[in-house]
């Protein structure tokens, strides 16, 4: 991982704390994400994963602690703007008033980085990269959940990101679409060596794509390690989280 191209960036989270209405949501998070790795934060709903992600991209300000991108604190003005960061939101967050093509090319168009015909070419290229042909002129409302997620990834790729954050990328998706999204995450790692931070409660996705996994519960990181280390962990919560299924619940209730 350390020999990943300098295109990608590393992330360090130090003592991050955040409360809403005096309810602590993040209780001192410490993490280090290496350049070019796929790092998955896994945990149950409401454990603070998405809030952590919003802090990493600068959408929220922490109460305490700091986030470093390649060693530079996000608290310093314009640090977030100097790195190319992209986020794939849980809902896709495509602008509903724009076509798919306009959504994907929005970053280039708004920052006047390319001429309209070049933007059109880049948009077509990114959509095709993600297997999305013939959707450029459609509205987001005409797409399925899986396609929206892939369009959101295409929009993120246009930025030529050094770090991509995925917020529950497979929620509301069927198993086949989940596999497609997982493959996209791995393909991006191979092709553009981007650092990926994935937040999910989907165990299959986590073990399928992660270089390392952090298990989070109630605003705290319980364990960090490779997928194998996580599988072997004897932490009671991690055991319960990894083995929970309908059968487990039924037997525990009858017991």
């Amino acid at each position: 991982m350390t020999d990943a191209p300098t295109h990608s960036i590393g992330v360090q989270v130090r003592g991050l704390r955040k409360s809403y209405d005096e309810q602590p949501v993040l209780k001192g998070i410490d993490l280090k994400i290496e350049r070019g790795e796929v790092f998955v934060i896994m945990g149950p709903s409401g454990s603070g994963k998405s809030v952590l992600l919003r802090h990493v991209i600068g959408l929220e300000d922490p109460d305490e602690g700091e986030i470093l991108l390649d060693g530079e604190s996000l608290r310093i003005t314009n640090v977030a703007e100097r790195f190319r960061l992209a986020m794939v939101f849980q809902s896709g967050a495509l602008l509903s008033s724009l076509t798919v093509g306009e959504n994907v090319g929005l970053y280039l168009a708004e920052h006047r980085l390319k001429k309209p015909d070049e933007i059109d070419r880049v948009v077509t290229e990114k959509l095709e990269f993600l297997g999305l042909r013939g959707v450029k002129h459609k509205m987001p409302s005409e797409l399925s959940g899986g396609m929206k997620k892939r369009v959101a990834i295409a929009r993120a790729l246009v930025i030529d990101p050094q770090l991509i954050l995925y917020d529950e990328p497979t929620s509301e998706l069927d198993p086949l679409s989940t596999i497609t999204i997982g493959e996209e995450i791995l393909a991006l790692k191979e092709r553009i060596h981007v650092t990926s931070l994935v937040v999910t409660h989907d165990r299959d996705l986590a073990f399928g794509v992660a270089d390392r996994i952090a298990i989070m519960s109630e605003g705290e990181i319980l364990f960090t390690g490779t997928p194998d280390e996580v599988r072997k962990s004897q932490h009671p919560f991690i055991r319960k989280f990894l083995t929970a299924d309908f059968k487990f619940n039924a037997s525990s209730q009858s017991a």
Binding site: R54, I57, L59, F89, A93, L94, L95, Y107, E110, I159
Partner: peptide
């Protein structure tokens, strides 16, 4: 309504992540 729904459905957050 338009801006409010953009806010609720994270479209404004998406703009901010693109430095817009």
């Amino acid at each position: 309504a338009e801006i409010g729904s953009m806010r609720v459905y994270q479209e404004i957050d998406a703009l901010r992540t693109m430095n817009i």
